[in-house]
Amino acid sequence: MYDLLIFLTLIAAGYSVGTLLEKRHYRSIHKREKAFLYLPAVTMKTVDYPEEKIRSAELVYGSVVISIDYFKKILAGLRNIFGGTVKSYESLVDRARREALLRMKEMAGDATVIVNVRIETSTISRKANQEGVGCLEAIAYGTALTLEK
């Protein structure tokens, strides 16, 4: 009986606080993505700038570790039985990657363009739906080029 009560409390807490945190995070992502529109991040290795105008090239990177809430973890577990799109994990990796890209851009400062951007994700604890902390790390890195004005 008590076990069920604890379980329901955890689900309720995970749902309410988790949804709130996710909404807040998305708002902040949208705001910062708009602010960083002047700094394009491309996956190409070269851009059409004259070589002699490039003042500096520097490695920039950003990373974030994000965990899933208890409610979504249960939801994903249920989804595993029937198969199909696991929406709750989609938003998790989406948030992690976009946050990592933003942090990379923050590190680039007043650069003109970031070339050869790579995004990687990895789990730093055990598998997400097993016991232990279900979280994933996203890292974005690239080369920031600064042009002479």
């Binding site: 988790g18 995070h25 994000i66 965990s67 809430d69 998790l92 979280c135």
Partner: peptide, 8 residues
Amino acid sequence: KNLVGGEL
């Protein structure tokens, strides 16, 4: 923090 999700 894993209960409510978010950045660790």
